[in-house]
């Protein structure tokens, strides 16, 4: 069955305040969505990510490895989390993406995985 990446996107005001009512509501919704994914067999893997400020970019050139503090993309939009799902086709995947976007109340990008 084809696999798709669902990624969640935040703007730079992405600060995880777990205590806020919004965050609580979203976490409940995402939890319910994750349960559905596992029940239906669509779940492959998923996780939230720490904010972009926690990232490190590593480059390898001429046998040497260098590091830069911060995310690769110097944009205000950053990925906040992702799901890998399996779905029969694009329409099924879009249905999951719509429910994901509703659960986390943020835009979700759907990309097909290479392979099949």
């Amino acid at each position: 069955m084809p696999q798709y990446l669902l990624s969640v996107w935040h703007d730079d005001t992405y600060e995880l305040d777990f205590a806020s009512p919004e965050a609580q509501r979203q976490m409940t919704q995402v939890g319910a969505f994750n349960d559905e994914l596992q029940r239906s067999g669509a779940w492959v893997f998923a996780s939230g990510l720490h904010p972009a400020s926690s990232a490190t970019v590593v480059r390898a050139a001429g046998g040497a490895v260098s590091m830069t503090d911060g995310p690769y993309a110097e944009t205000k939009e950053q990925m906040g989390g992702f799901w890998v799902v399996q779905a029969a086709d694009l329409d099924a995947a879009l249905d999951l993406a719509g429910r994901a976007a509703a659960a986390c109340e943020r835009p979700v990008e759907l990309r097909p995985m290479e392979g099949e």
């Binding site: 084809p2 798709y4 029969a88 086709d89 694009l90 329409d91 995947a93 759907l110 097909p112 099949e116």
Partner: peptide, 11 residues
Amino acid sequence: LRDNHAPYRIP
């Protein structure tokens, strides 16, 4: 359409 496995059907 191909890479995303768009289904060939009437919705």
